[in-house]
């Protein structure tokens, strides 16, 4: 059973987090283009954010930034930076992984999700 701790976190093992489906909530574009000088100009023209939630009560919330990478044949949405959310992952002894480590693991979990298509659809619906 999911609960919200006094500090606002929902605490879960990675296995439980992985088995909790997330659905797309909203996505948006950055209102101003990011600084691109340090990168290959092909990789950083468009960027934004996306937000996903669980259908549970209480709700798990995860959001992250992305950029549209156009280096290959087809543009590709790539996560950028750590996720933002209300989830704290627990280790095998049910201890907090810590914010930074939890974010790193959640980032890997996000990278294994198929979030790009829903995000692209939401962006096109909202802006095109």
């Amino acid at each position: 059973m999911l609960t919200v701790s006094d500090d606002g976190y929902i605490r879960l093992s990675l296995a439980d987090a992985r088995s909790t489906p997330l659905v797309h909530l909203l996505s948006g574009l950055d209102e101003e283009p990011r600084e691109c000088a340090a990168r290959d100009v092909k990789t950083c023209e468009i960027s934004g954010y996306t937000e996903w939630v669980s259908l549970t009560t209480p709700t798990i919330s995860l959001g992250w930034d992305w950029r549209l990478e156009v280096a290959g044949e087809r543009p590709r949405y790539v996560r950028e930076g750590p996720p933002r959310g209300n989830l704290m992952l627990l280790d095998a002894e049910a201890r907090d992984l810590g914010a930074a480590a939890s974010d790193t693991v959640l980032g890997a979990m996000i990278d294994a999700m198929a979030w790009q298509e829903a995000t692209e659809k939401a962006i096109k619906t909202r802006y095109v």
Binding site: L25, S61, R84, N86
Partner: peptide, 30 residues
């Protein structure tokens, strides 16, 4: 606004959200 949350995190503040965002006056807030 989500944009401010993003900037808080990028600036290194120990910030997290208490729940999912909702849209207020056309802008997602947390």
């Amino acid at each position: 606004p989500i944009g401010v949350e993003r900037l808080l995190r990028r600036a290194g503040f120990n910030a997290r959200r208490a729940g999912p965002p909702m849209v207020a006056e056309g802008h997602p807030v947390v």
